[in-house]
Design a protein around this nucleic acid. Sequence first.
DNA 1: GGCATTCCTGGAAACGTTTCCATACTCTGC
DNA 2: GCAGAGTATGGAAACGTTTCCAGGAATGCC
Lengths: 343, 343
Amino acid sequence: MSLRQPARATIRDVAAQAGVSVSSVSRVMNGEPHISPELHARIMRAVNRLRFEPHSAAQALRSRESKTIGCMVSDLSNPLYSEMINGAEEEFQRAGYVLMLAATRHEQDRETAFISAVRRRRMDGLLLFAGDNAHTDFTGALANLDLPCVAIDREVPGVPSVRADHRGGGLEITRYLIGLGHRRTALLTGRAALLPSSERLAGYRQAHTEAKLDVDPDLIRPQTQGSSIAFSDVCQLLQGPDRPTAIITLGTHMLAGVMDALASNGLRYPDDMSLVCIGDTDLARHATPGISALTWDLDQMGRVAANILLDRIRGGDEPRKIRPIYLPTRFILRHSGAKPRAP
Amino acid sequence: MSLRQPARATIRDVAAQAGVSVSSVSRVMNGEPHISPELHARIMRAVNRLRFEPHSAAQALRSRESKTIGCMVSDLSNPLYSEMINGAEEEFQRAGYVLMLAATRHEQDRETAFISAVRRRRMDGLLLFAGDNAHTDFTGALANLDLPCVAIDREVPGVPSVRADHRGGGLEITRYLIGLGHRRTALLTGRAALLPSSERLAGYRQAHTEAKLDVDPDLIRPQTQGSSIAFSDVCQLLQGPDRPTAIITLGTHMLAGVMDALASNGLRYPDDMSLVCIGDTDLARHATPGISALTWDLDQMGRVAANILLDRIRGGDEPRKIRPIYLPTRFILRHSGAKPRAP
DNA sequence: GGCATTCCTGGAAACGTTTCCATACTCTGC
DNA sequence: GCAGAGTATGGAAACGTTTCCAGGAATGCC
C-alpha cells in the first residue's frame, strides 16, 4: 500500500516544512505559552502532514525525564499482584507515563538486575510490590538509587508504602475463630519473608495473647505459596496427635490444596474443621458451603500507590511522610466456620 | 550515608579516568573484539570505580535500538492474560529486553494511544494480546508501524500469531456434550469480537453440523465477561420455554455466575444441567462435583510468542510465514456432565 | 518620545552514546 | 624487506531533542 517510509520525520523536517525554527516547533509540541496563533497553525499543519512524532529517547536524553515508571513484582501470574498493577497502570497511563514491568520470581539477581535497568533507563519512579524483605543486596542498591519509590505491601527502609492492614485482618479473623471456641488454629500464610505474611502472623499472635492462649509453633506454616504444599501441610497437621480445629489459609492456590486435603482425609467443613481464607476468590465464594474470607481492595491499592508515586515525582525531593498508608481489610462471613467438635 | 551524588558518570568520565578514548570505552562496554587485555582491564577498573552505567536513552538515540518490547493487553487483571505475560516477560528478560505494558480496557483510544507510544519510543517489537478484531483504526495504525509484531489469540492482518486451538477445543467439548445426548447446549463464551470466542463458536457449530443438529441462536450468548452477566444470562435461559440441558461457559468469573444461577433456580449439575468450562480454574477443580474443563498452556503460549517476536527482531525483515501457530487445548474430564434428563 | 517590559521567534549549544574513518602498529608469506 | 591483511586505538561526526541566550517588535508608563 504505502511506500516504505524512507525515514521518520524529525523536528528539523517539520521546521523546514513550516519555514520556522526548530525551537518554535519544540515549543508548540510542548504546549508552551507565548506562541502566535498563525505560527501554531502553520507548525501543526506541517506536523500532521509529515506525521511527526517526537523521538522519546532524544527527549529523555535532553530533558532528563523518561516518562517511565518501573514496576517490580515477584510473580505476575498471581492475580493479587496483577490486579493491583492493573489499577496502578491506569493511573500512570492517565498521567502520561508508561509502565516498565519486571517479574523477579523472588530471585535476588533479577531484583538487582532490574534496579540496574531502572538506573540506565533513568526511569522517573519505581513501584515495588511485595518481595522478600530479607534481600539486603537489593535494599542497598535501592538506597543508592535516589529516585522516587513507593512500596506496596513491602517494608523498605526510607521508602513510603501502601499496605493493606494485614495485621488487623489477621487479628479479626483469629479473634473470630477463637470466639467460636477454637484453641488450635493452623495458619498457612505464605512465605514468611513477605510483609503480609508476617503482619498476619502478628495479628494472629495478638489475638491469642488477648485470649491468654499459647500458640503452637507447629501450627504456623510459613511456606511458599502453592496448592500441593498446602495439601501436604494440612495432611501432616491432620496426622499429628493434636489436630487443629480451624485453618486460616491464603485464598489463591492454597485454599484449593487445603480443601483437597480435607476431602481426602474424609473431613468436612465447617463441622470437622473451620476454614477462613485470605483474599476472596471465586472458589471461596462458590464452594459449598461458602468460605469466609478476608478481602481488601486491590485495584484501589494500586491506584493509591500510583498516585503517591506521581506526587513524589512531581513534588521533587520533599522528604514527605514515610509513614505507611494502610488500607482496611474486610471480613466476609460465610458458612465455613463452626464451633469445634467436643473432643 | 553516601553523599548525594552530584552527577552520574558518563562514558567521557570513564575515558578520562582510564586515560583512553571514549570509543574504546564504548567498545569494551559492548563486548566488541580486538581489544587488548590491558586496555580492557584499565577501562573496567574505571567503570567500576565510577559506577558507570550507560544511559540507555543515549544508546537508543544513536544505535536505533531501544531494547524494549511493547505489550498490549485488554485487561491485565484477567489471570488468563497475566499468566501469558508472565511467561513472555521471562523470555524477554533473558534476552535483555524490558517489557512496556499497557492495558487498553477494550477502548480503541487507548489502543491507538499505545501504538503512538510504541512509535515515539521506538520500541523494538510489539506483543498484542487478544483484543477486539473490530477495531479498525487500530489495525490501520498498526499497518503503518513497520515493526516486528506478534499477536496472541488475535487476528491482525499481516501479523503472525500464536493461538490456542479454541476451535478444536470448542469442537471437542461440544462433541462430548452431543455424544451424551444433549441437543440444546448454551454457549457463554465472552465478547464476540474476540478471536477465541468466535473460534470456539465455530467449533461449536461444526460439532452441531456433524451431528446434523440445528443451533438455536438464542443459546449463544456472546456477552462481555462477568459473573453477573453470566448469572442473568443463565436465569433468562432457564425461564424460556425450551431450556438448554447443557452449558459451556468461560471459567474465569463467568462460571461462578453460572453456578449461582443454577443454585438459585434450584438446579444441580450434572443431573439437571451439564456443565463444561473453558479455562481451568480453582473453582472448576474444587467445586463438588468437579467441573470438566478445557485448558491450555498459558505460560507456554507467552513464551512461544515472545520467542517468535525475538526471532523476528533479530532476523530483520524476513517476510516469514505468517501462518498462525496453534497450541493444543486439552479436555479435562470431571463430573459435571451427564445424559440429559428424559423430557 | 524615551525607556523598561513583555511577547514572540531564531540560533546554537548541549544531552551521552555509537560508529565511521583514519592511523599506527604487528604479523604473515614470499 | 616489503605488500597486504589484520589488530588495536583515537578523533569526531552524528542521533533528535530541549533549553539557554539573544534580539526584534509591540506595548505600557511617565
